[in-house]
Nucleic acid binder design. Sequence first.
DNA 1: ACCCAGGGTCGTC
DNA 2: GACGACCCTGGG
Length: 288
Amino acid sequence: MKEQKYIIKDVQSFEPIHIFECGQCFRWDKQIDGSYTGIFGNNVMNVVKQNNNVIFSGICDGDIEKICKEYFDLDRNYEKIKNELSKIDDNVKTSIIYGSGIRILNQDLWETIISFIISANNNIPRIKGIINRISMKYGKEIKWNENKYYTFPTAEELSNATVGDLRALGLGFRDVRVYETTRKILNNEVSLEELKNENDTEKVREALLTLPGVGPKVADCILLFSTLKRFEVFPIDVWVRRVMNDLYIKNPDETKVNKREIEKLAKEKYGDLAGLAQQYLFYWKREA
DNA sequence: ACCCAGGGTCGTC
DNA sequence: GACGACCCTGGG
């Protein structure tokens, strides 16, 4: 654990604001100077883009270059992906210009599961607050630049929390879900290691759906935003339903739009890049 | 003050 | 399949 720095020059498809504000992660905060500081694994890191260079600096558990390449998905050609998606139609093209610097992070599977269980029927400021409080109470402290940061607790660490403890941290009705899912994973009723090695996406989804608090939407977010990295899934939430209805379906009452219809449409139009398309559309619709 | 929505899921009908 | 309930918070 030592302070390190890594710089990418002439970077393409990398905008910190797009990456950290597109709804895939909850532990990155904008600093006064416009940079972002976040915690992932046992790393505390600051990311800033200056001109066309990205500067990563922080306390890392290993080699910072290797850690960044993995976490920020740096070896993937997003230019190529964006070119392909832009051909689909003008809507997608516009959304891609808007969120041109989005990258899908390789987030820890366990942390992603718990984070998106907490996201259910919740808003982003509150989700971030809950995850911060959980980490402060059950994670490990890391000091950097006079500040204290807290890692997201492991399943073992989080198993110290009772349902009442979780309720006190503000989880609301999600307390039992987090409590029971933690135990199911600790007992290996659902083996995260097996999920990581399973090639069949449907099998992984089915296993995730057995976890309390994980329904179709949360399962798809876990598949897309964690190291499981399934770009073909298409998480449908209120925002995505809204944008898909506005762009294609045009039902006067968006709440009446059939989820199956959206799934079919997404698959037809976006194919195995549906998850990426979802992120550009989500960011575009939510910010604009 | 009051109401509503927020990256849904679960139990019940 | 379709409802309604669910804990809590910020914004209108």
